[in-house]
């Protein structure tokens, strides 16, 4: 009689020829591309990133160059028309993509890093540390962004992306910190955290290697949300003229367009392109966000429906 071979028949249908890392990446890739929302959003994001990287390289002309065609609608020479001073709108949009994207992504990243550190530390350590960090978080949460920005911009001698970035980070990190704190609080009492403690792991290691990997989905969602917020905030601040109006970005385009009464003059081609870019990029990021929710929470995933008719409904009643 042979020994039952249960020990070899692993319950999972996956074979183990592949290393587990490759396997996980493959699963993630499949999830990401199968999910239409994420695929769509990623497509948009990738498009804009490519434009930001390669646009200014391909189009070498100076976006600030004046030309005699003042306020002309889109034509063959100027694909998106020109501004009040004859600058090519298309060039400006393309070049401005790099600035806007870079600023938005960097400030979003910095704000997220701060919120991760504060939220996780407060949630894990509890006690006095948590009380202090929570208080700080709550203070920053109620700070009004726009008035603060205007005040700071008025006082700071340097007007430019750094100021705007600074203000955005200050007003953007606290919400994520709150979310992560409560998530960490619930993670803290999970048994695998206790098991790590019983193994002798250090707190830092537990926070960043045991708890944080379980919260990646939230952090990613928060990162994307903060980036959207940053892009919108920065555009808004630049529109108010609080940025460096000599650089070319979507926001400064709004500034100049507003200053020169573009709408009154009917120059829709000046306002629409940057606005559309912001809207589309924001939508793309939002789609990725929804998709992440579905990936992270299996219950939200829509399983493909049953392909068989529900026999119970079509059968004749016997009685």
């Amino acid at each position: 009689m042979s020994i039952p071979s249960f020990e070899v028949n692993l319950p999972s249908s996956e074979t183990s020829e592949f290393s587990s890392q490759v396997h996980r990446l493959r699963d993630m890739w499949r999830l990401v591309t199968l999910n239409r929302k994420v695929a769509f959003g990623l497509g948009i994001l990738v498009f804009f990133v490519l434009v930001a990287i390669f646009g200014p390289i391909i189009l070498t002309k100076d976006p600030n160059a004046f030309s005699p065609d003042i306020l002309s609608p889109p034509s063959a020479t100027h694909w998106l028309g020109t501004t009040q001073t004859g600058q090519d709108v298309f060039l400006q949009v393309v070049v401005g993509t790099r600035v806007s994207l870079l600023l938005g992504f960097i400030t979003g990243l910095v704000a997220t890093i701060i919120s991760v550190v504060v939220g996780l530390a407060g949630g894990y350590f509890g006690g006095v540390i948590d009380d202090v960090l929570s208080m700080v978080t709550n203070v920053f949460l109620v700070l009004p962004g726009l008035p603060l920005a205007i005040v700071l911009a008025a006082f700071l001698p340097y007007k430019g992306p750094l100021t705007i970035g600074f203000v955005t980070v200050i007003t953007g990190w606290s919400w994520g910190a709150r979310v992560l704190r409560s998530q960490t609080l619930s993670m803290r009492s999970r048994e695998f955290v206790e098991a790590s403690k019983a193994s002798g792991e250090s707190s830092m290691r537990i926070i960043f290697f045991e708890i944080l990997p379980n919260e990646i989905a939230i952090v990613a969602a928060e990162l994307l949300g903060t980036i959207i917020y940053a892009i919108l905030a920065e555009t808004g601040l630049e529109y108010l003229g609080l940025g460096d109006v000599t650089t070319v970005s979507w926001g400064t385009m709004f500034y100049w367009a507003g200053n020169n009464d573009a709408i009154l003059l009917g120059a829709w081609w000046w306002i629409l392109p940057p606005g559309l870019c912001i809207a589309v990029l924001g939508a793309g990021l939002a789609f990725i966000n929804f998709g992440i929710d579905e990936i992270a929470n299996p219950r939200l995933r829509k399983e493909p429906g049953p392909k068989v008719d529900k026999i119970s409904k079509t059968r004749e009643v016997a009685a």
């Binding site: 048994e191 695998f192 206790e194 098991a195 790590s196 045991e210 990997p213 379980n214 990646i216």
Partner: peptide, 10 residues
């Protein structure tokens, strides 16, 4: 609980 004493990401 064997389902929660192991970290699912490792």
């Amino acid at each position: 609980d064997p389902f929660s004493s192991l970290n699912p990401v490792h």
